[in-house]
Simulated scan of single mutants.
Amino acid sequence: MTDRGRTALRQTADTLQIGPSAMRWQNGQLIIDIDEISSPPVISRVQGRITVTPSALTTVELPLTPDGTHIWRPFAPTCTVEVDLDAPGWRWQGHGYFDANFGTRALEQDFTYWTWGRFPHQGGSTCFYDATRRDGSTLAMATHFDETGSAQAIPLPPKAPMKRSLWAVKRTTRADAGYTPKQVQNMLDAPFYSRSAVKTRLQGEETTGVHEALDLRRFRSPLLKPMLAVRVPRRAGWTFET
Rank of each mutant, 00 (worst) to 15 (best):
T7K: 15
T7A: 14
A8D: 09
L9T: 13
R10V: 12
R10T: 11
Q11L: 15
Q11V: 15
T12P: 07
A13G: 04
D14M: 05
D14E: 13
D14H: 13
T15D: 01
L16I: 09
L16S: 12
Q17N: 08
Q17V: 10
Q17D: 05
I18D: 07
I18G: 13
I18C: 12
I18R: 14
G19C: 12
G19E: 04
P20M: 09
P20G: 10
S21M: 05
S21I: 03
S21N: 07
A22I: 04
A22E: 10
A22F: 02
A22L: 10
M23S: 07
M23D: 10
M23I: 03
M23E: 07
M23Q: 12
R24T: 11
R24P: 04
W25G: 04
Q26T: 09
Q26N: 05
Q26R: 08
Q26K: 07
N27Q: 14
N27D: 15
N27E: 12
G28W: 00
G28L: 03
L30T: 05
I31W: 00
I31F: 01
I31S: 02
I31V: 11
D33Y: 01
I34R: 07
I34M: 07
I34W: 04
I37A: 08
I37T: 15
I37R: 14
I37N: 09
I37P: 00
S38N: 06
S38L: 10
S39Q: 10
S39L: 09
P40Y: 07
P40D: 06
V42G: 02
V42F: 13
V42Q: 12
V42N: 14
I43N: 10
I43E: 14
S44G: 04
S44V: 08
S44P: 01
R45P: 11
V46I: 15
Q47F: 07
G48S: 11
G48R: 11
G48A: 14
I50P: 00
T51N: 06
T51D: 02
V52D: 00
T53S: 09
T53L: 03
P54K: 01
S55G: 02
A56C: 13
L57S: 01
T59F: 03
V60G: 00
V60I: 03
E61H: 12
E61F: 09
L62T: 11
L62W: 07
L62H: 08
L62F: 04
T65Q: 14
P66Y: 06
D67W: 06
D67L: 08
G68L: 06
G68W: 10
G68A: 11
G68D: 12
T69L: 05
P74F: 01
P74E: 07
F75L: 12
F75P: 04
A76F: 00
